[in-house]
Computed example of a mutant assay.
Amino acid sequence: MMAAAQKPQSRQPEYRDGHGFIAEIIRTNRRKSADIRVEDGAVSVVVPVNTPAEKIDQLLAAKRRWIKEKITLHREMTPASSKRYVSGEAFSYLGRNYRLKVETGNFAPVKLLNGRLVVTVPNGTEQPHMIRNALVRWYKRQAEQKLTEKVNRFVPVVGVEPAGVGIRTFKSRWGSCTAKGKLEFNWQIMMAPNRMVDYVVIHELCHLIRHDHSPEFWREMARVMPDYQRCREWLREYALKLSI
């Protein structure tokens, strides 16, 4: 099995309150300076392993205006959601609906407990935004784990070896296969039923054989997944509902 698609090492999530946003702290040996990122409206700070929390707080305070501008820009560009991010609201994970449970307090990442998606966030006007970001982070973590596992499961069936697996946000596709053979998946596919997720994984693996949608490509799909057409049609019909 290729090393690039092995199960990601688990690390304990670390967060800092930026007063109006929550920043995820990612510690790494591969950096000598800090790097702030705002993706999907969520803030993350990549720092050297031993960076003190106080220094991270100082950096967030210094860059607060820039971060808030980026968050606001993302909100303005994101289509309006019908979600209110309140307790009792349903969110789909692998085709099953789970009810959101919002608790008030110091921020804690989403946990799936007793059939509920539980998130703890401070009270205030920013609460819905923080809840959405917490959910996005949770879905991305599930996608990183589950999609890597599925790739490893289907690699010997398809008979290919991808260069790696990545999780991204795509506006109008579920995945892609790069010219270098890396598979990239849209984290939102985790809202679809399990078989649809299998379809997307197999689809991108088959692109390592045929990098087009020729009859030969679909023959490979049918060989590995005889019911692929049903999954393809399901995703076309329900794509717009797979969003938060």
Rank of each mutant, 00 (worst) to 15 (best):
F107H: 01
Q127N: 09
V45C: 08
R99G: 14
V49C: 02
T51L: 02
R30Y: 07
V38A: 00
V47Y: 09
D35L: 14
T125D: 09
N50Y: 06
F107Y: 07
A23L: 06
K101Y: 01
N106T: 10
R99S: 15
E24R: 15
Y93D: 10
V38F: 01
E76A: 07
S81I: 08
E54C: 11
G88R: 09
Q58R: 15
L94S: 11
V47P: 05
M77G: 12
K32Y: 10
R75S: 13
R75E: 15
K83L: 15
V49P: 00
V38S: 01
Q127G: 06
R84I: 06
R116P: 09
V45F: 12
I131E: 02
A61T: 08
Y98F: 13
F107C: 01
G88I: 13
S81G: 10
G115M: 08
R96F: 09
V43Y: 06
V46I: 07
T51Y: 04
T104W: 13
K70F: 11
A42R: 15
R64Y: 02
R37K: 06
E24T: 10
F21N: 03
K32A: 10
L112P: 11
V45E: 09
G115L: 06
V118G: 07
I71M: 00
A61K: 14
S44W: 13
Q127A: 11
R64F: 00
P52D: 07
L59H: 12
A42Y: 08
I36Q: 06
T120Y: 09
E69R: 15
A90C: 03
M77Q: 15
G41D: 02
A80M: 14
R31H: 03
H129W: 02
P128M: 04
Q58V: 14
F107M: 00
E89F: 05
G95C: 02
R27P: 08
A53D: 11
A108W: 07
H74W: 09
L113M: 06
R96Q: 14
T28E: 10
N114W: 14
I71D: 01
G95M: 02
A62Y: 03
D35M: 12
T78V: 08
T104G: 05
R132G: 03
W66F: 08
E54W: 12
N114L: 11
E24H: 12
V46M: 00
H74F: 09
M130Y: 11
R65W: 03
E39D: 11
P48E: 03
E69C: 07
T120F: 05
Y93W: 10
P128E: 01
A34S: 13
E89R: 07
N114F: 11
G95T: 06
I67H: 08
